[in-house]
Every structure is written in structure tokens, then in C-alpha cells.
Design a protein around this nucleic acid. Structure first.
Lengths: 243, 243
DNA sequence: AGACATTTAATTGTCTGACATTTGTAGCAG
DNA sequence: CTGCTACAAATGTCAGACAATTAAATGTCT
């Protein structure tokens, strides 16, 4: 067991104080000078520890008189963004194959179906309808179509009115979107997607969970199929080139 | 738009290089001195930037000759732990009520049922059986029971053989466990839990997805019920005291 | 008294230069 | 070939200084 760095240790201590609730949102930490004295470290070391916490969105700092480091009020949106980038990295680094990613994404989204059908309100339906009409616009760029795709699905999971589900799902959907885009740009048929999105909207509107799940399953099947086809043709092209 | 700190900017630049794949796992970053020269900043500032990246598990540093900062190979387990602590904080800070947390947890876990039943192997069943027998031990401490509970459910989601699902779910399960524990310590009947766990195991063994989902739903209903009861009794106690 | 300008003090952000510590590599001795 | 030593390249830490920022206190004018 190698001894960790001092700054790492200090960061760990402070982090535990926050996670355990000994330091609560908007509490002010001692000034860097005070912390330095308290931990018997130099200001530079303390600052490195604080920067670690800041990178994890556990604290925010303010300059000037009566400034300092404050325990951050971590909100859902911020955490979601962080979750999404971490998932993105994870997926790209571990080279998850498309079928696995696709399966996970829709399994998770199906988990929202029943709750979304139960709790959806008019505003959610409106958001979904708005995105649907955007997606139907002729001449829409691929980028815009994909962005609207994400928004549509986020509106769907938000309809669960469960912030935990929203947080988990929206993070996952955003993280997997680059993979999805990759195939959208080349091969996805917008008509088929639009049809399924419409079915999903109507299912949620009718509070028909089974139909919503069925729509998502169809979307999964379709997307997986397109992806597989692409990979096959790419393999064929590659072996053709390398031969 | 206030200008962000230099160290923040440098961290952002390097992070983008990593996320965009311009720097790839195990690549070595320039030394702190080189980076300082390159960015026109002092070593201290560079170090603060690097510490931020280290806190996000994007790089790891090695001391000594030919040491330095290397792009980290982010693995599932590490990310999962980070995901779990972030979720824990989020839940405690936003004071999610028990019913919402419970519903989200089981909705997500049910999302795994079909896949787990399809892909489960003997090893997964063995792990689940082992935990089940631990949970049946008389005189088992509450802490040990809860720990085994977590392990049991993680074995279940691992049976999906889908690392993305495992990552998402295990993070969520661990994050919600403290809330679950809170009620376990006081009121949960182990017999009922054991019975349902047994049913879940048998459903997975028989590859019966519907039965697995049903077991999870029963567990959700039971847990939610116990939680509600506790909250009610607590409210009653509090109003009794404060009156 | 009230509005506005100025000073002040506290605090973070950055720089500089130094030294301590760690660790792979090269060279040397046996 | 093995083991020891010396070296060099990094990161880790420290001390002290100055710059920049900001809220509060103080002063000033009307």
C-alpha cells in the first residue's frame, strides 16, 4: 500500500465531510490559509486538494472578501452532464459494440414506459409533439435530426416525473447518442423512425404502457438491424481493401 | 460572462483533447514544466489543472524518472464507484422521497430482467445462491444483511452480461442503498425478502422473465409499503413531540 | 439623511524558486 | 550475469510574494 499524496488525502477528508453531511450545501470552508495551518500543509497543497473537489462539483469558489470555497448545491442537470460525459468516455474507451449499447439503451428506456404513461402531463406530450414536427421537416440536417431525437426521448423519460429516472436515463441516452448518430448519418430511414416516434407518443398519450414498450422494442429492433448491416458492410469493405 | 481561471481553462483544453480522442489511453502528457511553457503558465497553475483531471479519473500520475501524467484507462468498476457516490450525493442533497427512489430503483432493475434471464450463466446463479444462503443465516447483523442484499442484486444485473447495464444499475443500486438500509435497520422482515429473493433466483434460473419482473415488483411493493409506514409513524412521533 | 465615491481588508489566483522524494536507467564492480 | 551505486527526470511540497477581485466600511457631497 503506497502512501497517497498529501493533497489527495486532504481532498479525501474534505470529500468525506461533504458526503457524510458534516458539511452541508452552501457551507463555507475555512480559507486556504486556515486549511493550510489546520492540515499542516502549504497553501499550494491545499489548493490542489480544493481543485480536485471543484472538479467533482463538490465545491465552488468565490474570490474577494468574504469569498472562499463553498459546498456546492449539486443539481440534477449538472450531474446529468457529468454522468453523460463519463459514460461517453467509458463506452468509447472500452469499445462497446453497437448491439450491446443499443440493447442497454432501450432496455433502460423501456423501464420508464409504465411510469411515463402513468405520470405524463400535457406539457410532456407537447414537447414530444413539437420535436416530432421538427423531425418531419423536409431538408432537416442530420445534426438537427439527431438533436431533436435526443430531446424527444428526454421528454419521454421526463414524463416519468421521477428525477432519478430522468437523471439516469438522460445520461445514458446522451452518452449513447454518438454511437447512434454514427449510423443515423449514413443509413437510418427517417420515415420509419418518425412512424415509431408517433406510435410512442400516442401510446403515452393513451397511457398504454404495453404499446409504449412495444414501440421502443420496435425501435430497438430497427436500430440494431441497421447497425448490424452497417458493420457487416464495413467489414466487407475493409477486408476488400486489405486483401 | 466572467473569464474563467487559467487553470480551469487549461484543464478544459486537456479534457477536450482526451474526450475527443486526440489523446488516447496510456498516452503520456508533456511534463508539468513543458506544459507550463506551452501554456505560458507557472507549474503551480498547471498542477492545479492536472489535479482536476486526476479527480475525474481522466489521468493518473506517476512519480520518478519517465513518470508523468498518463491518460487513464477508465474501467467500469472505477466509473461505477464514482457514479454511485455522485448519485448518493444527488439524492441526499435534493432530498428525494423514499417512494420516488424506490420506484426508480426497481423500474431500472426490472429493465434487466429479460436480458438477465436470457444471458445468465451458472456462475451468476451460484453467486446469487451464495448470497441467499448468507442472508438466511440466523444472527446475521443488519450491516451484513444489507451488504449481501447489494451483492445479490448486483449478481442479478451482472447476469445480463451487458457491461453498460451493469454499470448503470449497480451505480443506482449502491446509491439508493443507504435509503434502503435506513428502513431495513428498523423494520424490514427478512423472511419476506428472502422469499422474494428466492423467487427471483428461480425465475432467472428458469429463464422466466415475467416471473422475475413480478418478483421485483413484489419487492418494490413490499419495500415501499414498509417505507411509507415508517415515514407515517415518524411523522406521528414528531407531531406528538412537537405538540 | 441619503446617494455616491473611496478606501480597506480578506481571499482567491498566479508566479518564482527552491528542495524533497521517487523511480527508471546506465554504469560499474565482483 | 548479478547486484550495487550514481544519476537524471519527474512529480510532490514548501515559502513567500504579488495581482485581482470583491464585499463591507468609511468618507464626501448634496
Amino acid at each position: 500500500m503506497s502512501k497517497p499524496d498529501l493533497s489527495t488525502e486532504i481532498a479525501r477528508t474534505l470529500r468525506e465531510d461533504i458526503v457524510a453531511g458534516r458539511l452541508v450545501a452552501d457551507d463555507r470552508l475555512p480559507s486556504e490559509a486556515d486549511l493550510a495551518e489546520q492540515y499542516g500543509a502549504s497553501r499550494a497543497t491545499i489548493r490542489e486538494a480544493l481543485k480536485r473537489l471543484a472538479a467533482q462539483n463538490l465545491i465552488r469558489t468565490q474570490r474577494g472578501a468574504f469569498g472562499g470555497a463553498f459546498v456546492a448545491r449539486l443539481d440534477w442537470a449538472e450531474a446529468q452532464a457529468q454522468h453523460a460525459t463519463m459514460s461517453t468516455l467509458l463506452i468509447s474507451m472500452n469499445e462497446v459494440d453497437f448491439a450491446t449499447a443499443c440493447h442497454a439503451r432501450f432496455a433502460l428506456e423501456r423501464a420508464c414506459a409504465a411510469t411515463a404513461c402513468q405520470n405524463r402531463e400535457a406539457a410532456h406530450l407537447d414537447r414530444m409533439r413539437a420535436e416530432l414536427s421538427i423531425q418531419a421537416r423536409p431538408g432537416l440536417s442530420d445534426e438537427a435530426f439527431c438533436a431533436s431525437d435526443v430531446t424527444f426521448h428526454r421528454a419521454f423519460v421526463d414524463a416519468t416525473a421521477n428525477p432519478i429516472l430522468s437523471y439516469q436515463l438522460a445520461g445514458a441516452i446522451e452518452a449513447l447518442q454518438p454511437l447512434m448518430n454514427m449510423i443515423t448519418y449514413t443509413a437510418r430511414s427517417r420515415d420509419e423512425i418518425l412512424r415509431i416516434h408517433g406510435d410512442l407518443l400516442h401510446a403515452v398519450e393513451a397511457r398504454d404502457a404495453a404499446a409504449a414498450e412495444a414501440a421502443l422494442t420496435r425501435l430497438e429492433t430497427y436500430t440494431t438491424g441497421v447497425g448490424e448491416g452497417l458493420i457487416l458492410s464495413r467489414h466487407a469493405a475493409r477486408s476488400g481493401q486489405s486483401a
